[in-house]
Design a protein around this nucleic acid. Structure first.
Lengths: 212, 212
DNA sequence: TAGATTGTTAATCGATTAACAATC
DNA sequence: TAGATTGTTAATCGATTAACAATC
């Protein structure tokens, strides 16, 4: 908002830059040129310089970029320097796996609550969090003010629960439902993850290679 | 290969068309115009017609598209009319969730084997499949000839296991490892899924909205 | 200073949108 | 036949790449 709107293509590359710079840092790199980074990432040096220049001048002519300095800058742009409370709806197979597999802290979030409707699951612990009855959502949100939510619930309940969550102050959705969330409210962010679409793309890749 | 190469942007939209057409079909739609489909999907009618015309003439002037006919055509393009055997490496939280959560059949695959190195997991059942010791991989592949693999293994073993799988005839990877697989062999397909990057993007969206 | 590499402008490429003749 | 909507060409827009002057 402060600068001209950054294009979506650039934003989507930032997490990958952040990851690569982290690896370089662990491997002892102190500086890196756009040319060398491009080689490692399979991009062009031009693109890398254009991307970084959307946000400011992070490099130094004749030297390149300071690896850890650049990583920190990108981390700040991505908002990884602050964490935001997040809740999970749906503690089935996928929900449980997400809750235990993802490193929320390093992605700018903190998982603070897990909710489900199934009595067999309510009360069980996932990591350090006890699964609550989804009817507790109102109480919980009024007390703890989470601003983001993961949706691992059945497709059919997605629309209804989304509306409910928006009314409770949720402003960002990480959606694993088999349903394309398209929010018409202002200032609400949605990241749809369609694992099925991803696998389907692989089917195309493998089968169109070897025509019969 | 038969036609001029289809651009990646088009391919990535096909699974979504396929999903929407399936829903329309369930809801009793027989025909649909590009204009109406565009509205429902949040695209332009132009784009939809351009996309479909990459593969042939699926519509009829003055009428539009036959919903189930069009869906079948796209299914065939995506290779969903045949299934291909797939194995899973790594039966931790995420691997188990993928194995039980994904409908492989409808995506053109059949899950035929699950492998892990952890003795606590080997021998356990996930759905109808018993987890095998990863040392059995050679035997299994020589007997069953899977052509695709899901990687839910730790980052560090990804490179080594990928090489091993390629030698065993695997031609497509669905990669959940925190590592960008870039295969230099010909005719090997990779679909990298970076859940962490997806969540990181959401951090950006939510935090850049409200500058401090 | 000379060499290296950025920041940035200009050129190219590809993808999306608009327009319309063909045709059901 | 008249109306609707496709298939397809042309125009626009945006993203990537190339080039180079600025500068460390």
């Amino acid at each position: 908002m402060s600068k001209d709107a950054i294009s979506n293509s650039v934003i989507r590359r930032l997490p990958r830059y952040y990851r690569f710079l982290g690896e370089l840092e662990s491997n002892g790199y102190v500086r890196i040129s756009s040319r060398e980074l491009a080689e490692k990432m399979g991009l062009t040096a031009s693109q890398i310089r254009q991307d970084f220049n959307c946000f400011g001048e992070f490099g130094q002519q004749g030297y390149g970029y300071n690896v850890s300095g650049l990583r920190d800058e990108i981390g700040k742009i991505l908002g990884l320097d602050k964490t935001t409370p997040m809740i999970l709806l749906g503690a089935g197979n996928l929900g449980r796996a997400i809750a235990s597999h993802i490193d929320f802290q390093s992605k700018g979030f903190e998982l603070v609550g897990i909710f489900d409707a199934n009595p067999d699951i309510i009360g069980k612990k996932i990591g350090s969090i006890t699964v609550s009855n989804i009817s507790e959502l109102e109480n919980f949100c009024n007390r703890n003010h989470p601003v983001s939510a993961i949706l691992c619930i059945p497709r059919d309940s997605a629309i209804k629960e989304t509306e409910r969550l928006i009314n409770l102050g949720i402003r960002a959705f990480w959606n694993f439902t088999h349903y394309d969330l398209r929010i018409h409210h202002e200032n609400i962010a949605v990241e749809n993850v369609h694992l099925g679409d991803s696998l389907t793309t692989l089917s195309y890749a493998i089968k169109s290679d070897y025509p019969d």
